[in-house]
Design a protein around this nucleic acid. Structure first.
Lengths: 161, 161
DNA sequence: CAAAACTACGTAGTTAAATACATAAATAAA
DNA sequence: TTTATTTATGTATTTAACTACGTAGTTTTG
């Protein structure tokens, strides 16, 4: 065990990042093992469009929790892959409406069994005495209610009394 | 609740990354609220050197779990801030030995009470029915024993039987 | 209904990590 | 003891996110 792992909660941001990166990389390799040309970073957009069908750029950005410029660059890649297409909204001319192509829909069907296997492997990793996914949900809920910064500032001002 | 949060375990990498980023940003702002010029990304290096005192570049990289080029660029920043200094190892001339400067040590003393507040706020966020830090530890242990990719490939081959 | 404010999208530039590659010193092997 | 291998460090380039900024529609307001 190294110092950072021992440092506990203070290094939690680093630990989260590292874990995320490991899972992402292995995910990419697992798609490849099926001969599927799919990058894990595309998942949020594709999965969202599978359920919502037609969304604008900003709507997708909000759904996946990225900024809109990041989303635009993801959409560009997906458009190059011909997995999505877009058209101008006739009512609001500023909006670009995005949806899956037939190729995109077919790819999803092809990936569904892969996702099932990934789900099992991930659940196995994440479900222990403490369930990682539930822990994330609980932490996110707390942050949504009051951010880390707000909590820390409050503790700071209480300490100054 | 959006689609990605509903998608559960499949989007866990994205969720981990997002949470990490939120905590990192708030951390930076909290240091600033004390008038301390310190970036959260420096924490792993500084904290490690606080306990190990003298380490080479690659040793630090291993401790903090980054690649050595990333570590070198962190070290460059810290050297520019005069928080660390380095000298050539007399026994092994390839090695550059890194340690905290007096300024670095003083900064740590200044940050210790800040870290205490952060610890409380983070513990409050992370400790729920499922403890996030423990969940990370458990997941990392499982991955260390058998990676996500290995587990997924194994499930795949079992399914093919 | 004209001006102001807001919203949607896009581009440019920055940042923080990675990978790939190169070099030099140390160690092992023939 | 030369040669080959490994290790430590560094540089260049790539990647995937961000912020800052600009433009063009849309909506609200005086």
């Amino acid at each position: 065990m190294n110092i950072i792992d021992e440092s506990g909660i203070l290094a939690i941001s680093t630990r989260l990042q590292r874990l995320s990166e490991q899972l992402r990389k292995d995910g990419a390799l697992f798609y490849k093992s099926y001969g599927i040309d799919f990058e894990p970073k595309w998942f949020p957009v594709i999965y969202t469009l599978h359920y919502k069908e037609v969304l604008s750029v900003v709507e997708i950005a909000n759904e996946i929790g990225y900024t809109h410029p990041s989303t635009i660059s993801l959409l560009k890649e997906l458009e190059k892959q011909k997995l999505i297409r877009s058209k101008k909204d006739k009512i609001d001319e500023r909006k670009r409406l995005i949806q899956l192509t037939t190729k995109g829909q077919e790819l999803i069907e092809q990936m569904k069994p892969v996702w099932d296997v990934m789900k099992k492997a991930l659940s196995d990793i994440a479900d222990n005495q403490n369930n990682l996914l539930k822990a994330i949900n609980e932490a996110e809920n707390k942050i949504m209610h009051q951010s880390f910064l707000q909590r820390a500032l409050q503790l700071k001002s209480e300490g100054e009394k």
